[in-house]
Design a protein around this nucleic acid. Structure first.
Lengths: 105, 105
DNA sequence: ATATTATATCGTATAAATACGATATAAAGG
DNA sequence: CCTTTATATCGTATTTATACGATATAATAT
């Protein structure tokens, strides 16, 4: 059985890169641990990994992995200070996401 | 090794149900096929499952599964009309998500 | 130099998501 | 009544996500 993709008469024209970015950010937001990290950073900007690890009910390795996901989609930014890593929300990304969601839907 | 969850001094107080809903909606948005379905419904409100199936590069069963996910988090609404099913975006959910995201972040 | 501390990454087990074909269901048409 | 059509659900294979302990890395302290 072959599947021919029919072109819709009037599909929404959204930049592919932008759409991919929207989906990545949504996926990152769609996990309870990562959502909790973002909320924590909201009230504790510039805190270190250790603070987040202490706050969360999961292992250090897993927390680090989640931070990586959030960094990759640029929802957060990090900076190494000596042996520690500080993290903040990336306001620009949040603004972009909010405005894009509002623009599309 | 025991893990004691330390209470942060000033965590963001967000209703648990609302947060769970935010996460579910975000997760639903965080998939390329589902994102495509939502975009399609934006330009084709009230269309039937078959239209969406024709438009997407995936099987009917998989499409139906994705529609179920979107229905479950109330991003879309459906109505059975004879042997067909019509679908629309749920504007209320979209409005709620946008305003809540803006409120939190 | 060595030990400690903070964090990231590796390897891997388990769980969840995604995909498909086959089948069930239920309305509509012959 | 039987057939067709549209869709949903079942069973299941495969992929991706999530979790952990162990280890690597790199700065700081002793």
């Amino acid at each position: 059985m072959e599947k021919a993709k029919s072109k819709a008469c009037c599909t929404l024209d959204l930049n592919t890169e932008e759409q991919t970015r929207m989906i990545h950010i949504s996926k990152a937001l769609g996990n309870p641990i990562r959502f909790e990290i973002l909320k924590f950073l909201l009230t504790h900007p510039g805190c270190i990994t250790g603070d987040i690890v202490k706050y969360l009910p999961i292992a250090q390795a897993t927390t680090s992995q989640h931070l990586k996901v959030l960094k990759e989609c640029r929802l957060i930014e990090g900076e190494i200070e000596g042996t520690k890593s500080c993290y903040w929300l990336n306001e620009q990304t949040l603004l972009w996401y909010k405005s894009k969601i509002a623009e599309i839907f």
